[in-house]
């Protein structure tokens, strides 16, 4: 029997991408369930979700990406899914690689597997400045937790039941991806990466804009250090 997989798709104003993203997911992975978390979008996202009968929850107020993804994790816990996969709603993540990301988790090799675009270095590699930022955070996480992860901001990631339940209760609010790696590692979960190829987003604008990047770097760095101080490092789990 194969694992019950839930794909969590956070969505904030993705009217241009929703249909393509979900149809592509349904085509490539017909046997997984998905849940779109509409984070109080102000565009026609809700209408599109309802008209197409897509499985979704709608947050009555905007919580940001962290609160949105966490809603998905809570849904996965309530409905007894074995693996929860976060996949962005902007079309950057190709569902063809879904099983590459869930595989190590399903086989019990990892508690969290992150789809990384920097292992094979194929496909969309993002801008130089952003790669620099990702590298800095990667080194910082390595220093603080001893875990080397290349694509720390990748939002394409699978978690097993145990870690999903943990994230359902503890998840950072604003830019949660690097922090999630940190807190998972420090709490003794096994984190690793699988190579994937990413695309440039299909339409709309990314939620991380260049003007906000400096603020993002400072905030995440501080959050990581605080994380390191506040969580007592635990040994590996089995």
């Amino acid at each position: 029997m194969s694992a019950k997989i839930l794909v969590i798709i956070p969505c904030y104003n993705e009217e241009e991408n929703l249909v393509r993203v979900i149809d592509r997911l349904k085509r490539s992975c017909p046997d997984v369930d998905y849940l779109v978390v509409n984070d109080c979008s102000t565009d026609r996202s809700e209408q599109i979700l309802r008209e197409n009968g897509y499985n979704h929850v709608t947050l009555p107020v905007n919580l940001g990406i962290g609160g949105g993804v966490q809603t998905g994790y809570r849904y996965a816990v309530e409905n007894g899914y074995d693996i929860a996969v976060q996949m962005d709603g902007d079309g950057q993540h190709d569902p063809a690689y879904l099983y590459e990301v869930t595989g190590p988790v399903e086989r019990g090799e990892l508690d969290m597997c992150i789809g990384s675009r920097f292992i094979t270095k194929e496909g969309f590699q993002t801008s130089f400045m952003r790669r620099l930022g990702i590298n800095i955070l990667s080194v910082l996480i390595h220093i603080l937790s001893g875990k080397k992860v290349l694509d720390v901001t990748s939002g394409f990631r699978a978690t097993n039941k145990e870690l999903t339940a943990y994230f359902a209760n503890h998840y950072a609010a604003d830019y949660p991806e690097p922090e999630a790696i940190m807190s998972a590692t420090l709490n003794g979960f096994k984190v690793g990466e699988a190579p994937v190829v990413m695309e440039e987003r299909m339409g709309g604008v990314s939620s991380i804009r260049s003007l906000k990047s400096a603020y993002y770097m400072i905030k995440v760095s501080i959050a990581l250090v605080i994380n390191r101080i506040s969580i007592q490092k635990k040994g590996g789990r089995g």
Binding site: V57, T58, L59, P60, G67, Q70, T71, R74, Y75
Partner: peptide, 14 residues
């Protein structure tokens, strides 16, 4: 608390 409640409302609505 507000975040937890918002999430619960959304899950219940679904």
């Amino acid at each position: 608390k507000n975040k937890r409640q918002t999430q619960s409302i959304a899950l219940l609505e679904e």
